[in-house]
């Protein structure tokens, strides 16, 4: 075939050049194919990882529902607290063993089995209320002896369970105590003197930065800011609050604090304090 060879360059030399160049082209194709496969695989892995991380961020919805569900009804359903204010009524016995009440671990920690799985009893998930017998398997040694488990369960709902997923304990809402009325510096209990011009309302409020007193007497209403006295109570003048002695004085204490706003209302009978 050498006599038919069309070029001046020897055949074997051209063939060697062709083989070398062809090998490079083939290698390039392989590398590109491998890169494409790796890119596809990397994209797939990244996508799966993203999906997994997204699911992980949201947590297991079933676990969250079971963990949060029992806690919500345990919030004291009084008219004096809005969401977030319930955690102020910390029950010492509800603290997890080895932890301080203010630094309770999430519900997962206290409502989980030794294996780390949350308790998912059908009763707690269907009734929406935490089974107190199972949610408080506290060690007797860590439960303060002054706190009766029965009393805790009846008088104060178990509100110390932090919401699932919260890593920082919520700030307690203001706690409003019993409203007292003083006339000329003398407590008159829960009554208001209709003819007293120097009466004042006093109430103890914890964790509050601002307290206001709203009063409604008959058709008139007013709002005054309460002042913190030296003894710690918040006081406000009631001297002109009673405009309609025929009806009780409706009083609402609005306490605002870092943990929220607490409103506490009461109807104070109006009495004649004339000696």
């Amino acid at each position: 075939m050498s006599d038919q060879w069309p070029t001046d360059t020897p055949r074997d030399e051209v063939l060697a050049r062709v083989v070398a160049r062809g090998t490079r082209i083939r290698t390039m194709h392989r590398v590109m194919r491998m890169a494409a496969v790796l890119a596809v695989a990397g994209t797939s892995v990244a996508g799966v990882g993203y999906v997994i991380s997204s699911v992980g961020d949201q947590g297991d919805p079933a676990v969250q529902e079971l963990a949060v569900g029992p806690v919500q009804p345990d919030v004291p359903l009084t008219d004096s607290a809005d969401p977030g204010g319930s955690t102020s009524a910390t029950v010492p016995g509800d603290a997890a063993p080895g932890s301080t009440p203010g630094l309770n671990p999430p519900a997962y920690g206290s409502d989980s089995t030794p294996s780390g799985l949350p308790r998912t009893s059908a009763a707690s998930s269907t009734t929406g209320r935490a089974p107190s017998t199972t949610s408080r398997p506290r060690s007797p040694a860590t439960t303060p002896s002054t706190t009766s488990p029965v009393t805790t369960a009846t008088s104060a709902p178990p509100t110390t369970e932090p919401l699932a997923g919260n890593t920082v304990p919520p700030t307690p809402a203001p706690a409003v105590g019993t409203l007292r009325v003083k006339a000329d510096g003398v407590s008159v209990g829960a009554n208001v003197c209709s003819n007293e011009t120097r009466s004042e309302a006093a109430v103890s409020v914890d964790a509050a930065t601002d307290v206001k007193l709203e009063t409604i007497s008959g058709d008139s209403s007013r709002e005054v800011a309460m002042q913190k006295s030296v003894d710690g109570d918040w006081t406000a003048d009631l001297s002109s609050a009673v405009t309609d002695p025929a009806h009780p004085l409706l009083v609402t204490v609005v306490a605002t604090g870092p943990g929220g706003v607490t409103r506490s209302s009461a109807a104070l009978p109006v009495v004649d304090c004339t000696p």
Binding site: R17, V19, G22, I25, H29
Partner: peptide
């Protein structure tokens, strides 16, 4: 070059 591509 054409033959190199044929080789590949």
């Amino acid at each position: 070059e054409a033959m190199a591509r044929a080789y590949a």
